[in-house]
Design a binder for these strands. Structure first.
Lengths: 233, 233
DNA sequence: CGTCATGTTGAACCGGCTCAATTGTCGTGG
DNA sequence: CCACGACAATTGAGCCGGTTCAACATGACG
């Protein structure tokens, strides 16, 4: 582990989560560099040549697809400790655009050397395949949400998912801050911003949540999860 | 290429599409076996231990997710020459259930040896990663459809997709046969069977298609594609 | 020929959308 | 510090696309 990695807030999360088998003396070969993004800044865009995968070190990102008519559809939110850019291997260029939702730090890893390394280290190879495959898992869960769920179920699914991932990152499970706008939530869930608002108001009115704009607190998380069982995988 | 592969209808499609770099003398090590499935029979089920990936040799399959309440959501259709089971690497067990829609032949490949082989052959490694990554691409395209499209756009997207894939398999581009039921189409598109029927009727009434139950013919494919541009990727 | 699943069509309903207006939030500059 | 403007969030009223529910047609298969 080199100097930059020692300081990385991901130093614990990165290896077990992503690249368990990389022996320290070699890992510096992989790291391409860090970037600091401002809110709204893109890390990569759809169509960019794919050479790097990225870890979110701090902040939050979204990834979005572009429709033929040019409008965007948010297809994922990414918290610290998670990877973005793993949609690249499919075609050799990114198929999504990754944008920072707030000031965000990322760490980039060169894909070529990573592949090469993985062929020498079976554990890395398996982890890499797993990571790429998990990309599809996420998308499939998303399909389940968009398929035939009501607005409240969709919103509940997102909140429970964010809660769980925030917890995995060491944050509170019941007190989550939404770094994305209502419009972005709506795009992700296949709803309008108005409906997102109304659903959150209903959750508040029925004492399931406290909602203060972008701050959400579960009043009884287990009860909430029980009320929306179809959303848990 | 061993005897079974010589007779395989995929013998041309398999290598270029999937495993370009496997040198013939070794490929027999990979092939695990063939299976013949009847309509409705499952090749694997959600939760089964993941050891094999499969190619569809003939017939048609669907893969489906299971909701917490037990109901299924179709998440993909698979034509001859395409792979199924690549959702396995993520967690070491299948996350979907693959079912034959008609009499279907499959060819299975052991994942472990494939991984091992791929570490010696960079081209195979890259292809394997690409295949796994394409799994996510498919799911993302599906998200785009389920996100915010009208019923007709969804149906058009499916028909154009099937047309394109049928053409890739050497079949007619404008004359396609739907091996799946209206219910399965509806599940895949996030619609009811009734709506699927009505949309097809509308396409027929507006002279875009000839529809005879499970047989669909585009009367003017380019015009159809132009009428639904948002559905083409 | 009867049975059962699949497909089709119609009528009424409703969840979420559209459109429009209001309020809240935050950054900027006076 | 406040005023201002731009944008995000919220709320209401009315509408509409797709669902629900029900009836009927078709077709596969014993």
């Amino acid at each position: 582990m080199n100097a930059a990695c020692c300081a990385c807030p991901l130093r614990h999360a990165c290896s077990p989560g992503g690249l368990a088998g990389v022996d320290p003396p070699r890992s510096h070969l992989l790291m391409f560099g860090r970037r600091c993004l401002l809110a709204g800044e893109a890390l990569y865009r759809k169509g960019d040549a794919f050479h790097l995968v990225h870890a979110v070190c701090s902040g939050t990102m979204k990834s979005s697809l572009t429709r033929a008519d040019g409008r965007a559809q948010v297809c994922g939110f990414h918290l610290p400790g998670e990877f973005v850019g793993l949609d690249g291997p499919a075609e050799g260029h990114y198929q999504t655009t990754a944008t920072a939702l707030e000031a965000t730090q990322t760490c980039s890893v060169a894909y070529g050397p990573l592949l090469e390394l993985s062929s020498r280290l079976p554990l890395v190879q398996q982890d890499l395949n797993r990571l790429i495959s998990r990309e599809a898992s996420r998308a499939r869960r998303h399909i389940l949400v968009l398929g035939r769920m009501t607005a409240s179920e969709r919103m509940a699914a997102l909140l429970l998912d964010l809660s769980q991932r925030a917890a995995a990152g060491g944050h509170s499970r019941s007190d989550i801050s939404l770094r994305m706008s209502r419009r972005e939530i709506g795009s992700y869930l296949g709803l309008t911003t108005e409906t997102v608002c109304r659903v959150l108001r209903d959750f508040r009115d029925t004492k399931l949540l406290e909602v203060d704009t972008r701050r959400v607190r579960f009043l009884d998380l287990p009860a909430f999860a029980r009320a929306y069982p179809a959303t848990v995988n």
